[in-house]
């Protein structure tokens, strides 16, 4: 009996370990090639760690390429999108959580529909709509598009966090003479800080990763976000693997930071999103 239990535990840990190795190996390889000196790149191709390491690729990417601009553009776009979405979604999520009103059913239906149809359908019409407004090739245009795309999910996410807070709290405040908006701002919002952090993280990561609309709407380096920049970098310097992977490692950093921040709320958040849309 005891040996059987030990065997089972061993198999369980081994399986977990296999999953961890599978999850981390590609990222490890990215890091490995980014610190491998050029002269060892091909001679030590399949070695797990190079005999010498260097940071020259990172140095080159930071000083001789447009990567810092891409990085800055991506930070601006993702940061602004995350901020605007979180503010607007906490308002709409609050409305869905606390009010019963005639249009509620239609609002929820509209938001669900937007989650179902292929966004790639919108590539052409959005380009045609934004171009006369001067919003193609501009970071503002990207922020507007990403804000709308992330709004439905963020609204449901915030709603699920508001649902977890008892109604008595703001009812008590309103008996004491506060308006509903005051109660919302001063009592409910501070209690939803974890939800706000999770929404910020989700939206930031989504905007940081978006590729197709950025490719379509942005041409030229000045307004390119990291995905667009990295892809042009790849096609331009198709042989300089060390530098490309160094740029890749840099693109990974903000996403991983945000992931660590929201990791705790992941199960809760994705469940809310999965159930509702």
């Amino acid at each position: 009996m005891r040996t059987k239990k030990l065997l089972l535990t061993g198999a369980h840990r081994l399986a977990i370990l296999a999953y961890i190795v599978f999850a981390l190996f590609p990222l490890f390889w990215l890091l490995k090639v980014s610190v491998t000196p050029n002269d060892l790149l091909y001679t030590e191709g399949v070695r797990l760690w190079p005999s010498r390491t260097t940071f020259e690729h990172f140095e080159f990417v930071l000083t001789h390429s447009a990567s810092p601009i891409f990085f800055r553009n991506s930070l601006i776009v993702s940061g602004a999108t995350a901020l605007v979405v979180t503010i607007l979604a906490s308002l709409s999520g609050y409305a869905l959580s606390r009010f019963t009103f005639r249009g509620k059913y239609w609002i929820v239906a509209l938001m669900l529909v937007t989650q179902m149809f292929p966004l790639v359908m919108l590539v052409a019409p959005i380009f045609k709509m934004l171009s006369p407004l001067g919003l193609t090739n501009s970071l503002t245009g990207l922020v507007i598009v990403y804000t709308a795309f992330n709004m439905p999910f963020a609204t449901f996410l915030m709603q699920s966090f508001f649902d977890g807070i008892p109604k008595d709290l703001e009812e008590a405040a309103m008996i004491d003479g506060a308006t509903q908006f005051m109660a919302f701002r001063q009592i409910i919002l501070p209690l939803t800080l974890p939800g706000i952090a999770a929404t910020l993280g989700f939206v930031f990561t989504a905007a940081w990763s978006e590729l197709l609309f950025a490719l379509m709407l942005i041409s030229g380096n000045d307004a390119a976000t990291f995905p667009v920049g990295l892809l042009t970098f790849v096609s331009k310097f198709a042989v300089d693997f060390g530098q490309m992977m160094a740029a890749g490692v840099m693109a990974l950093i903000p996403a991983c930071l945000f992931f660590l921040l929201i990791q705790r709320y992941l199960v809760q958040g994705l469940t809310a999103g999965a159930v509702k849309g």
Partner: peptide, 11 residues
């Protein structure tokens, strides 16, 4: 094991 989910898809 959940880390890959945070990796941007293009990357």
């Amino acid at each position: 094991v959940f880390l890959p989910w945070a990796v941007p898809t293009f990357l």
